[in-house]
């Protein structure tokens, strides 16, 4: 049997097998730490930084991505401190400016309480989360696509920009891409924020025990919890 380690997330003591990362441990225990680039059983990349948490050590805390943080005995994690909520909102705001036409990102925004976007809109069709690249490589052993280019020209591409014959046409890359889940066509209040249409927010508020059903993290009772925190702090 695996050795277990005990960590504390937002005050809750969690037992988790050694070698798990903090994000997995928390999700398993029903504590939702919002995340975007993480895919269960695929090597975490730490690309989106949405899953940041504070690790408290010797009275000091430092922020880091929880999906790339291995759970160690006695770790104390704050996943929803004020600092984290603020930082995470900022990160999601940047994502939203990058790609507002994604349901997954709009969900994230609603979940972490982003109500405006202060950054210039880019309207890109990719946020470089690397979900497609990793699933193709690790689950399908196909390596049909990958990151190409450097700096601001880094992008996901197929070799010579056409589908290679060894692509298995499993469509996993497309299914897992946060950009392929299009948001509802309702009006956006701010040029970029659609979570404000109310349905998600009010659902989370009126009906206890329902989360916003964010597309990427379905089923965790996280949103209500977090929105409450948001409503209290703003």
């Amino acid at each position: 049997m695996n050795k277990m380690v005990t960590i504390t997330v937002d005050g809750a003591r969690i037992e988790t097998p050694e070698g798990m990362n903090v994000l997995e441990a928390a999700l398993e225990a029903g504590i939702c730490i919002p995340n975007l680039c993480y895919i269960p059983s695929v090597t975490p990349l730490g690309a989106c930084r949405v899953c940041i948490v504070e690790v408290v050590q010797n009275g000091r805390s430092k922020m880091t991505a929880s999906c790339t943080l291995e759970a160690k005995e006695g770790m104390v994690i704050r996943a929803h401190s004020e600092d984290i909520i603020r930082a995470r909102r900022n990160i999601v705001e940047l994502l939203l400016a990058e790609a507002p036409n994604s349901r997954a990102i709009q969900d994230l925004a609603a979940r972490v309480g982003v109500t405006r976007v202060r950054y210039p809109m880019r309207n890109n069709s990719c946020v470089l989360c690397g979900r497609c690249v990793r699933v193709c490589d690790e689950i399908w052993q196909s390596k049909s696509l990958g990151f190409v280019g450097r700096g601001r020209n880094r992008h996901v591409a197929l070799p010579f920009n056409k589908r290679p014959e060894f692509c298995k046409r499993c469509n996993a890359c497309i299914d897992l891409c946060p950009m392929t889940i299009t948001p509802c066509p309702g009006p956006m209040k701010e040029p970029a924020v659609c979570g404000l249409c109310g349905s998600q927010l009010s659902m989370a508020e009126d009906t206890p025990d329902t989360c916003v059903w964010c597309e990427l993290g379905r089923g965790f009772q996280c949103a209500r919890w977090q929105l409450k925190g948001v409503l209290n702090t703003t």
């Binding site: 390596k143 049909s144 696509l145 990958g146 990151f147 190409v148 280019g149 450097r150 591409a157 197929l158 070799p159 010579f160 290679p164 060894f166």
Partner: peptide, 21 residues
């Protein structure tokens, strides 16, 4: 590049990435 990928046993996308880098 396709031949290189086969011969050296490197995924084609890696060769393509290098060529772009």
């Amino acid at each position: 590049l396709c031949r290189v990928s086969e011969k050296l046993g490197i995924p084609l996308i890696e060769v393509f990435r290098l060529a772009n880098f």
